[in-house]
Design a protein around this nucleic acid. Structure first.
Lengths: 229, 229
DNA sequence: ACAATACTGTCATGAGAATGTCATAAGGCT
DNA sequence: AGCCTTATGACATTCTCATGACAGTATTGT
């Protein structure tokens, strides 16, 4: 199971290094920047699984980064944990209202941050924490690399596996073909958008059962979504 | 739009009443109990959208309630926010590790709790947290790409979808056909203005229901507007 | 190392849905 | 009434998606 990707936006370099060390030890993949603008670029290039964002950073402010991340379609749903030196409740509330998912006041212990990161990830992407995910009558066990439909194991190819995993992690949401290419094939893939159709079909075929309706919804001129029953 | 259902487990009755008042004012549906066992029963009877759980309550402890909620299939994925008087980091970490989604230390302001509740719900049930657009008995969920009338899903084509979305984003305002062409078809479209009429008709037909009046108002020699009921 | 097998990406084709336009009917307004 | 605007049904065209085939590439097992 691929390591959860964190993006740490923090301009206190000693803190950043400490956190990098701790998180990498826990099996996370960490990228660091001290600059807000650069953070946006990095997030766009390779969408992280979670962003840890210092309120006070160089360039654009943390809260502005938060807002912009929310505005971009690709990063709109990436969870964000804000860090701040301020105690003021107003700031906390404002951070949450801007779209942060959680909030930690400095000084904090790395252990608490780790716990919060893992709590947020568990909620948002259970598969990253090794938990199996369910969507309707589908169940995916990331550790065993197995997919079940109605309790029965189903064989799918590697690409179909990644595809169904991604869709199951975001049930009901419609993804365009290019979003799916980014998420499943990687940001720099130069693959025909139509190829997505083919893999969707292969996936449908693999998980098809008699008298059970197809859980994959085609949204004309928009993309595909997984609809748990 | 169904109100998000909260279950508040808190044995300080004055705090409970205060929170009930604030949450109901915000449009939540709140149920309250001071007892852990009873909380389990209430949660099983009618699964809430979110649980606010005091660490120190009568009967079984908060953390035990948390664990049991996680164990029951029906409530395993209901987000939980824990409240506690303790400052100790150990407790915070333990709470998160037990499966709480968030954690607040007393004393806290109701406003911050509101913000956190809404942050958690936003992630879990986007349609509940204002990510969907509502206009009268119409509701549009842009993430799932769905349109509902009176709670019932309605099928519309891509153009009608964009059209109704635009109208719902600006309720009551009258738009000329050329404004609608710009907004829905794009600035450089070279399409007959009369075509708008046809799509308005198709939209009306799609969202029509027995005994419910048409929410689209024709403004003679001016254009169309959406009139929420 | 080699062969058998599985997987991938692309394309051509056909079915079906959505779109834009028009002709005509219906409805308002002066 | 007479003029003007909108509603409606039909229709040809254009788009979009589903599907099967295929050649090239990985992967697997021996």
């Amino acid at each position: 199971m691929s390591a959860p990707k964190l993006l740490l936006v923090e301009d206190d370099s000693s803190l950043a290094e400490l956190l990098e060390y701790r998180f990498e030890k826990e099996g996370y993949e960490v990228r660091i920047t001290a600059d807000g603008e650069e953070a946006m670029v990095m997030a766009a290039e390779d969408v992280p699984d979670l962003v840890i964002l210092d309120w006070m950073i160089e360039g654009i402010s943390g809260i502005e980064v938060c807002r912009r991340l929310r505005r971009e379609k690709a990063t709109a749903h990436v969870p964000i944990i804000m860090l701040t030196a301020r105690e003021a409740e107003d700031d906390r509330v404002r951070g949450l209202e801007t779209g942060a998912d959680d909030y930690l006041t400095k000084p904090f212990s790395p252990r608490e941050l780790l716990a919060r990161v893992s709590a947020v990830l568990r909620r948002v992407r259970p598969a990253l924490a090794g938990e199996s995910i369910e969507a309707g009558d589908l169940r995916l066990d990331p550790v065993a690399h197995r997919l079940e439909r109605c309790g029965q194991e189903v064989q799918v190819g590697p690409t179909e596996y990644r595809l169904v995993k991604f869709l199951m992690e975001h049930p009901r949401r419609v993804f365009s073909r290019s979003q799916l290419l980014d998420a499943v094939w990687g940001t720099d893939s130069e693959i025909e958008e139509r190829t997505v159709d083919v893999h969707i079909r292969r996936l449908r075929k693999s998980i098809a059962l008699e008298n059970v309706r197809d859980p994959i919804r085609t949204v004309r001129s928009a993309g595909y979504a997984l609809e748990p029953v």
